[in-house]
């Protein structure tokens, strides 16, 4: 009884004191982030409500309300880009997550020569995206691509295949190329997450007679949730902003079948110099990412879950 009253009484004061500590601990991060992106962010938001057709400061920038947003919503290219981006994000993140968890668990096994596996897994990740995309664009070439040579010489295919020739195939190829590189990221985070799972849990589960699969479902996966939330949100954001790999591999072709939202924003803002509309597209990307992230966080918990108290 008395203990409970004391706790209730001290709670707000403690929260206030912790609030002040938190403030001081967070100020440096706020400076580093907002000091750089603060003003550009404000400009982007403002420009999304203006007609801006030149980068020059003296160019007129009339306020147009929601016109830029109305424009993109009525543009078939925008919806095409939305479809492509959602497709890319869904399959890219899904594959990376499934393969990444498997790979993380694999790397966790006390195998002999484990370092070789870890080096092999890290190498694709270490290759800069620009190089990775250029490499696969070359490997997948329909006329002289080494991947085609490999498939034909090992008898897996009769003939050279045009990976980037048709819409679906090009999109899937781009997804696979990105998965090949970025699954490592998921795997290493999973590996780090596995370190904090107490071994005792497995031991007692084993005594209870739980099989390996059962242990994975009921111990590993639930305890990996915070880590999975991080990588899922991270990869979703990155996938939703996908630009470099598509720019280098297909330029959004053939027939715009791989044009992502970020590529569409880039073409609008840079090639066409329609900065107002480009800003609006960028903010739409943020909105999409934000809602997807919130959804995952709700589902998976972690720091962003319900307030701990």
């Amino acid at each position: 009884m008395t203990e409970a009253t004391v706790e209730v009484a001290t709670k707000p004061r403690r929260a206030r004191r912790e609030g002040r500590t938190a403030f001081f601990l967070l100020v440096p991060a706020v400076v580093v982030v907002l000091g750089v992106v603060g003003w550009p962010l404000v400009t982007t938001v403002l420009n999304s409500f203006r007609r801006v057709e030149s980068a020059l400061p003296k160019a007129p920038k009339p306020f147009v309300g929601l016109h830029n947003y109305a424009y993109i919503l009525s543009d078939s290219d925008f919806w095409n880009a939305v479809r492509n981006t959602l497709y890319f994000t869904f399959f890219n993140t899904g594959l990376e997550l499934i393969l990444g968890v498997g790979l993380g668990v694999l790397m966790f096994q006390p195998m002999r020569g484990r370092w070789l596996l870890r080096v092999a897994v890290i190498l694709p990740w270490a290759l800069p995206t620009v190089v990775n995309a250029a490499m696969w664009r070359y490997y997948m070439n329909a006329d002289y691509g080494p991947l085609n040579a490999f498939l034909v010489q090992t008898g897996l295919r009769q003939d050279y295949y045009s990976f980037l020739g048709s819409g679906t195939s090009a999109m899937n190829s781009v997804i696979l190329v990105d998965v090949w590189k970025n699954t490592s990221l998921v795997a290493f985070f999973v590996l780090a997450g596995l370190q904090v799972i107490p071994k005792e849990l497995y031991e007692s589960a084993e005594i209870d007679g739980a099989g390996a699969l059962r242990r994975f479902w009921s111990i590993t996966l639930p305890l990996l949730r915070p880590v999975l939330a991080v990588v899922l949100v991270l990869r979703t954001i990155e996938a939703f902003k996908v630009f470099d790999v598509i720019y280098v591999m297909t330029r959004g072709g053939p027939a715009s079948s791989t044009t992502s939202l970020a590529l569409y924003a880039y073409k609008t803002a840079f090639s066409d110099q329609l900065f107002g509309i480009g800003s609006a597209i960028s903010l739409v990307i943020v909105l999409f990412c934000l809602s997807l992230s919130l959804f995952y966080i709700r589902a998976l918990g972690g720091s962003m879950g319900p307030e701990q108290s």
Partner: peptide
């Protein structure tokens, strides 16, 4: 992770939101 304060979730989400803005939007003002 360890402190309780008002706007904690909003603050963390705001940080994350800056990460969501495509480079293309920021590059010219920057």
């Amino acid at each position: 992770s360890r402190l309780r304060f008002r706007g904690r979730r909003t603050a963390l989400m705001s940080f994350l939101a800056t990460y969501m803005v495509p480079t293309i939007a920021l590059v010219i003002p920057l």
